[in-house]
Simulated scan of single mutants.
Amino acid sequence: MTQTPGRRGFLLGGAVIGAGALVSACTSNEPAAAPAATSAAAAPAPAPAGGNDAPGDKVVIGFSAPAADHGWIAAIAKNAADAAKQYSDVEFKAVEPTNDISVQISAVESLIAAKVNVIVMLPNDGAQLNQIARTATDAGIPVVNLDRVFPDKLSYRTWIGGDNYGMGVAAGHFIGKKLKDAGTSNPVILEIQGIATLPLTQDRSKGFEDALKSYGFSVTAKQDAQFTVESGTEVAANLLQAHPKIDAIWNHDDDQGIGVLAAIKEANRSEFFMVGGAGSANAMREIQADSGVLKATVTYSPTMAASAIKLARLIAQGKGMSDLLEHQVPQSITLASETITKENAAEYLPLGFES
């Protein structure tokens, strides 16, 4: 998901819980029992002294990600750093974040030269960073591939990321059920994507389309907004002008959603409801207030970065996930996409990231 500031996900499902991922302060991606402060602001709690979390062999974890010019990406970097601080046996070696492919390649080369024990990498573009990841792997340095996947499975030891298709399915079911329960026929449903050319965006759109079909509905119009506030405002304004009557909108990204909501407010439109994407704290507070069109958001939590650090530590120390029978960390872990509404926003707010 050239993937530039791409995106996002949230709570860990199934096997990931065994990794202790929910104990981390990742937004993604994040402890359900955390207090009211958001994970991006909360100090990391010490890891429990027992089992896999007990101090073990010292490991150096290299970390590389895009520039933190987006709320979700910023939360990725913070979640990773905070998770590393939980362990006395982890040295966290982060290289300068960048949106330049060649600069990220050079940065990862420096981690390989430093002979770190393991590398956690969220590539700007999985295809273009594939070779450097393979170089690290061939040099005996395991790579934990975060979010945007490398096309060559030999380039990474473990992948962890969000369920983009599942995000679309969750949004589609929320919208479809709400419209069906209201007895709405032939609804006007709009979709505001992130970056249309990215596989992650295409997966989200496909999930949304498939879920809506089960209610006999389809997307009336869609346009991409590049994951930015400015484009969110512009795209939403254009769609609002083109459609004098709207029943529902799904916006893929809560960061760009700030611009989308600004355009809706400027147009003084309120005849429809909207679903967001990613699970930002801003969106959750808006949903809690229930004073506007935003009624839900589907998660794609940055806490995945904290979980990636935990997995990298286990891999480097030759450990598996203590709650599983297998001796090794799984090769692939997909986070579940949760639907956040007014009813459960308070529970998820500690996991949100600030846009």
Rank of each mutant, 00 (worst) to 15 (best):
L154D: 12
L154H: 08
L154I: 05
S155K: 07
S155V: 05
S155Y: 06
Y156D: 14
Y156C: 14
R157T: 15
R157W: 13
T158L: 15
T158Y: 03
W159E: 00
W159R: 05
W159S: 01
W159H: 14
I160T: 14
G161S: 08
G161I: 08
G161Q: 06
G162K: 01
G162L: 04
G162D: 02
N164H: 14
Y165T: 11
G166M: 05
G166C: 03
M167Y: 03
G168F: 01
A170R: 11
A170S: 11
A171S: 13
A171K: 10
G172M: 05
H173L: 04
H173T: 14
H173C: 00
H173Q: 12
F174N: 09
F174Q: 12
I175R: 11
G176I: 09
G176L: 08
G176C: 10
K177S: 09
K177I: 01
K177D: 06
K177F: 01
K178C: 04
K178S: 14
K178L: 03
L179N: 11
D181Y: 02
D181N: 11
D181K: 09
A182K: 14
G183E: 06
T184E: 07
S185Y: 02
N186R: 14
N186M: 05
N186A: 15
P187I: 04
P187G: 03
V188E: 11
V188Y: 09
I189E: 03
L190W: 09
L190K: 13
I192Q: 07
I192R: 07
I192M: 12
I192T: 06
Q193C: 01
Q193V: 07
G194I: 05
G194M: 02
I195G: 04
I195K: 06
A196V: 10
A196G: 03
A196Q: 13
A196H: 02
L198P: 00
L200Q: 13
L200V: 11
T201E: 13
Q202S: 11
Q202C: 06
Q202Y: 04
D203P: 02
D203T: 02
D203N: 13
D203G: 01
R204F: 06
R204E: 07
K206M: 04
K206Y: 02
G207Y: 11
G207L: 11
G207P: 13
F208H: 12
E209Y: 11
E209W: 01
D210W: 11
A211W: 09
A211Q: 10
A211K: 08
L212F: 08
L212T: 08
K213C: 08
S214W: 07
S214P: 03
Y215R: 07
Y215I: 02
G216E: 08
G216V: 12
G216W: 10
F217P: 07
F217K: 10
F217A: 04
S218A: 15
V219L: 13
V219G: 11
T220R: 11
T220Q: 13
A221Q: 14
A221R: 07
K222D: 14
K222G: 14
K222H: 14
Q223G: 06
Q223R: 12
Q223P: 04
D224H: 08
D224N: 12
Q226N: 13
Q226S: 08
Q226E: 05
Q226T: 08
F227I: 12
F227G: 08
T228A: 02
V229H: 00
E230H: 00
E230M: 01
E230R: 01
E230P: 00
S231Y: 07
S231G: 12
S231E: 10
S231K: 15
G232L: 01
G232V: 03
T233L: 11
T233N: 12
E234F: 00
E234C: 00
E234T: 15
